[in-house]
């Protein structure tokens, strides 16, 4: 089973919120003092692919589209056990919207060919869009299943549990298909030393817009007007006390008096 996993390089979403800054001039966000990472849901998708490979064999190709891709970051899926890395790296990919992203990835997926399954994260940690997977499915005319919490595959079909707000749906589909992966799939594995060594030896394939036949700037359909940080006044009243128990009692009294509880 040959799987293509789309993974993105993002600013670290787990860095303390206090490190988050916006460069208002360029409508760009930064995490001060924290290096970029691969997007967490993309990493869950890599984990899902590795489990399918363990069960069914085959190869895993990672595709990353972006600018200034740090090799030590984008090679992490290889260190986890993926086989191949394709980078769509070009200045022209700066600030593209969800649809253009899906278009570029779809063209690259077509060029690569020979795939049974395409995996994406349910949403990237920066855009929080959740659009790339469904859009790739539409562009390539493939079945689309979102927010997978479990994936089982046979040679020609797929059985997926889709997490819903009330439980889950069991969905069947033919292959090839596009599936977006959620965290319920299970913790991504850590790269092993052996994996890290193997990843060092793999040279990424680099494709430019021209290599995949993408006409940029195709023009985004959506424009970012403004990016801003909501403010929280932060007026927390800490209760006093010599001991934890004392503080707890003071708080209970206070909440009761003020009729909050």
């Amino acid at each position: 089973m040959n799987i293509i996993v789309c993974v993105k390089q993002v600013i670290d979403p787990e860095a303390p919120p206090a490190s988050f800054k916006i460069d208002t001039e360029n409508n760009k966000a930064e995490m001060h003092g924290a290096p970029p990472v691969i997007d967490p849901y993309g990493e869950y998708a890599v984990e899902a692919a590795l489990r399918l490979k363990e069960a069914k064999g085959g190869t895993i190709t990672i595709m990353v589209m972006g600018v200034n891709l740090l090799r030590e970051v984008v090679k992490k899926p290889l260190a986890m056990g993926a086989d191949e890395l394709i980078l769509l790296e070009d200045e022209a990919f700066t600030g593209v919207d969800s649809l253009t992203t899906a278009q570029a990835l779809s063209l690259a997926i077509k060029k690569k060919g020979g795939y049974d399954l395409i995996l994406c994260g349910r949403e990237a940690s920066d855009t929080n869009a959740g659009q790339t997977g469904p859009a790739i499915a539409e562009i390539l005319g493939l079945p689309c299943i979102t927010i997978a919490r479990k994936i089982e595959a046979s040679d020609s079909s797929l059985k997926v549990e889709r997490a819903t707000l009330t439980g889950y749906d069991v969905i069947e589909s033919t292959l090839p298909a596009v599936v977006t992966v959620s965290n319920e799939i299970g913790e991504p594995r850590y790269p092993t030393i052996k994996g890290i060594m193997a990843a060092k030896k793999i040279e990424p394939v680099i494709w430019k817009p021209g290599d995949i036949g993408l006409d940029l700037p195709a023009g985004n359909k959506t424009k970012l007007r403004r990016l801003f940080q909501p403010v929280h006044e932060g007026k927390c009243e800490f209760v006093d006390g010599e001991t934890a128990e004392e503080m707890a009692v003071t708080l209970a009294n206070k909440l009761r008096e003020s009729k909050i509880l």
Partner: peptide, 30 residues
């Protein structure tokens, strides 16, 4: 912790000590 930037009331302490005392006191008051 960032949660205190949103909280109206806060207790800086170990929940294992705070929570039982808090629940017990509320029970009394209620």
């Amino acid at each position: 912790a960032n949660i205190f930037r949103y909280a109206r009331f806060g207790v800086a302490g170990d929940w294992k000590k705070v929570l039982p005392a808090f629940t017990a006191r509320l029970k009394e008051l209620m």
